[in-house]
Design a protein around this nucleic acid. Structure first.
Lengths: 350, 350
DNA sequence: ATGAAAGCGCTAACAC
DNA sequence: GTGTTAGCGCTTTCAT
């Protein structure tokens, strides 16, 4: 594709300079003939302050267009009202939705969300945790875990860390997750019930314990019916639509091909289905495909995609309410598993 | 659907308490028999400091597990190394991708990104702008504009504001946008070349000047061939797949139906196509559909979706480099239009 | 009900 | 090269 970047740049004479001089509490105090403390009191809605004075102060603030400096306040109270969220990639529909819900929920509680994309890199995850260490954020939500837990644990001395949408065997922190084992089991059992005996499985990375549990569910469902699987039926790095294209190619080149695939995510399912259809496969007869996440994409492909629905809204609310407990109360944090059930949605692809 | 929320909560005895006591510069100074200033110097890689002392200081810092407080630093230098991005909804694929690219680019320059979702609400946009006012962020990127510019302009005195992916007639700020007019013109011209004479147009909101320009392109292409349009062929609030479903219903109920549709976004296109196919339409013969954004979804629907490709990566890089100019130099900001061309991608749906 | 004053942790101008 | 010192803008204890 030959894209020509003709770029139009117009510059005008309209200029605008921002003044660096901030109106401070001090100036308001002077103008109102009161002390800084009184100003601070009205700022923080303290009860005992003369209502005439309060009115006047408020008026002067408005006149001077005063707004308190949140940096100064942060330093004084040693809090930032900001939570960091670590996700691999915000453009992935699942993580986008997660970020949306968490952000929305935090905002309700007057917290801001700093989104950090790791792109699956250990180093960036540690950078994010450093934000906790140097007090740039009040707490951290990890929606994936790139490092070993033991390399993360030390950051716990600086503030709460929660795991969400992921699992870890030993971490002494709240873990908000889905019943991945049961989801895998349920999906594969469904495929078996449709007559399939050769079933493949896709995952992004088996460093993820959530994915591992899902795989155990898959294995359990197979064993239960004395079905076996081949190593070639396991496909890693399954994340995007394009991974779906690639995985279908691999599958199609196999001598002994699975007739059903649990793709672990809807994007991959869509890619597999599209590519398979192009190559003349009938879905679900020749190849049944089950996704994961229940994204809107499931409804627009042909055939539509059977999938696992996960309660993102609920789990996002919960992770927010949990982290706020530890921030507000300065309570000690401990291991706590909050596991949500999932729901199999049957559509045309299985 | 009857979803049962059986929730498993396990609590363990492993507890973990974070110490609130931070190691400060002072303590390091005392332990090393130097002054705060020297510590600060090594922290900021200043040249003139005895290398033995530097070593020792670094060693002690490591031993005490010291990390500088970014809040304190922020207050002192009156900067937060954080930029706020305003988008309607992070879960929308286009905005997700935009957020991804901007965040990635900012990180390279050692800035953090605070993502604020407006959900198309004026009020939340103003809340975001207040962050600039109270120095919680160094600058603001607006990827949509909910308020009138005159209500936003006053915030310019507190820091740079840039517009990206949107347009405004008069705002004296850098505007990084696409050639929406030409995109609309090009897409509709293409539909006309395929023999269509009744062409519909979808938009999210005509408060958006970018959308308005796109519509002008649509109108221009029609006029050029002396084609007319009907008000019923204009569909608003076109954002998601589900909006696509709804819009098709509306279209299908029309007495005089358009035979082609420029949907303004790929999600809507996918929804329209799916629903139309279900109702027995042949795409593109009965209804040609052209999307916008060139998301991966275009490749997995049947038929695949013709669309407008926009250079998100380039424009994201540019918006970051632009905003950093004004933050670093404290330069006065001015009107400057940086407009990227788009690219028509023809697939099966037209 | 209000003020004085200390100080959050760090940086930078100035002096030596 | 290094130390002294003032102060960023705010909150909060302690007096009154």
């Amino acid at each position: 594709m030959n894209r020509i970047y003709f770029m139009l740049t117009i510059t005008c004479q309209h200029f605008f300079l921002w003044s660096d001089s901030m109106v401070t509490i001090k100036e308001i105090a002077k103008l109102c003939n009161v002390s800084n403390a009184t100003i601070s009191r009205v700022l923080n809605n303290h009860p005992y302050v003369n209502s005439e004075k309060r009115e006047k102060i408020l008026r002067v603030m408005k006149e001077l267009n005063y707004t308190p400096s949140s940096i100064a306040r942060n330093l004084r109270i040693n809090k930032t009202q900001t939570i960091a969220l670590s996700i691999p990639n915000i453009a992935h529909p699942f993580f986008g939705q997660l970020a949306k819900e968490i952000s929305k929920e935090l905002l309700k509680h007057n917290y801001k969300l700093l989104i950090y994309q790791t792109f699956y890199e250990k180093k960036i995850e540690l950078e994010l945790l450093a934000l906790l260490e140097n007090k740039a954020v009040d707490g951290v939500i990890l929606a994936s875990l790139e490092n070993k837990w033991k390399d993360v644990e030390c950051y716990l001395t600086h503030g709460p860390i929660l795991l969400c949408n992921e699992y870890e065997e030993t971490a002494p922190i709240p873990i908000i997750c889905y019943d991945e084992y049961e989801a895998g089991y349920k999906a594969v059992k469904h495929l078996i019930s449709k007559g399939h005996e050769k079933i493949g499985f896709c995952y992004d990375s088996l460093n993820s314990q959530a994915q591992l549990k899902r795989k155990q569910g898959y294995l359990h469902a197979l064993e239960e019916k004395q079905l076996s699987y081949k190593k070639e039926w396991l496909f890693g790095n399954a994340i995007t639509v394009e991974d779906g294209f690639r995985i279908f190619e691999k599958l199609n080149n196999l001598k002994d091909r699975p007739t059903a695939l649990f793709t672990g995510n809807d994007q991959v399912a869509a890619g597999v289905i599209k590519n398979a259809t192009l190559k003349g496969y009938n879905i679900p007869t020749d190849l049944a495909v089950c996704g994961y996440d229940n994204q809107l994409i499931c409804k627009v492909t042909s055939p539509t995609i059977s999938t696992i629905d996960i309660p993102i809204v609920e789990s996002s609310k919960r992770v927010v309410s949990e982290i706020l407990i530890y921030i507000d109360s300065k309570d000690s944090i401990g291991r706590k598993i909050i596991q949500y059930p999932t729901n199999l949605i049957i559509r045309e692809s299985t």
